[in-house]
């Protein structure tokens, strides 16, 4: 447990360059934070490659009339309907499906699929679109130039471009978002780093549907890994071989 205040020992100004060199390392390489911990002040970086965070959506349990996951995400991250459906951001959306051959109807949420090989990361010219060591795909809004190539590349339409200025009151301190950059589901990375589950998962569980499971795909003992081992599931656009971290059952 760390003590934020009083602050750690005063860092003499001469260490500034040292700190800046560290920034360069963090920006350029995505190696685990071994070298960074020396002055970053932390025992270990949260995003480590031993974990792979993922979701399992059970379409069989998802209620077509329920959109608790969507409202929870919107509330948590501060995006919402502004009356412009074509330009409003949607980090997560409910999609209603009707199977053409059988007429079977189902409903499920679609969000960023947090691919192992994300096309959005490949195409991003500045490297703003990136994949954390633990599999969470994020946009670094500090260097996003708003070219929208990632939106062209995403097979799931998971990303939104922020077309309008976001009022300060709408912003969440844990989920920065601003005009002219691209955004998408962060898997509630601020919650994950604090050992909690994403807002959509929590909200779904609160309704009693329990249609979304969150956990570590790398841990064979995790609830999600056990469920995946037990029941058939699939990834969206499996043909592309992107290995998404979000899986669907009952499709």
């Amino acid at each position: 447990m760390k003590q934020p205040t009083p602050r750690p020992d005063a860092v003499p100004p001469s260490r500034r360059d040292f700190l800046r060199a560290g920034a360069a390392v963090a920006t350029i390489t995505l190696a685990p934070g071994v070298t960074l911990t020396a002055f970053g002040g932390s025992a270990e970086a949260e995003a480590d490659a031993n974990h792979r965070w993922g979701l399992l959506v059970d379409a069989g349990k998802c209620d077509p009339d329920c959109s608790a996951c969507v409202s929870a995400c919107s509330q948590e991250n501060g995006w919402h309907d502004t009356g412009h459906p074509e330009t409003d951001a949607q980090w997560i959306r409910k999609v209603d499906l009707t199977e053409i051959a059988t007429g079977r109807e189902l409903s499920l949420p679609v969000m960023c699929q947090h691919c192992e090989s994300p096309p959005c990361v490949d195409v991003c010219p500045t490297g703003a679109s990136f994949r954390r060591a633990d599999g969470i795909v994020l946009v670094d809004k500090h260097i996003c130039i708003g070219c929208r190539y990632c939106m062209m590349a995403c097979p799931f339409k998971a990303r939104s471009f922020i077309h309008e200025t976001v009022p300060d009151a709408d912003k969440r301190s844990f989920a920065p978002r601003g005009r002219g950059t691209v955004e998408s589901c962060t898997l509630c990375v601020h919650r994950v780093d604090a050992g909690r589950v994403p807002a959509c998962v929590e909200a779904c569980a609160a309704t009693g549907h329990n249609a979304i499971l969150f956990g570590d795909l790398n841990d064979p003992e995790s609830e999600i890994s056990k469920a995946l081992a037990q029941y058939p599931s699939m990834a969206l656009r499996d043909d592309l071989g992107l290995d998404p971290g979000v899986r669907y059952a009952g499709l």
């Binding site: 760390k2 005063a10 860092v11 970053g40 932390s42 970086a45 954390r132 060591a133 670094d140």
Partner: peptide, 30 residues
């Protein structure tokens, strides 16, 4: 504890350094 002068001078670098740690590495103890 570092004093105000230190922060006045170095806050851009400190913020930039730590933002990358937090965003890219998930280190929130910055």
């Amino acid at each position: 504890p570092e004093g105000n002068e230190y922060w006045r001078r170095h806050h851009p670098d400190l913020l930039r350094h730590d933002r990358d740690l937090t965003l890219r590495m998930g280190d929130r103890t910055v």
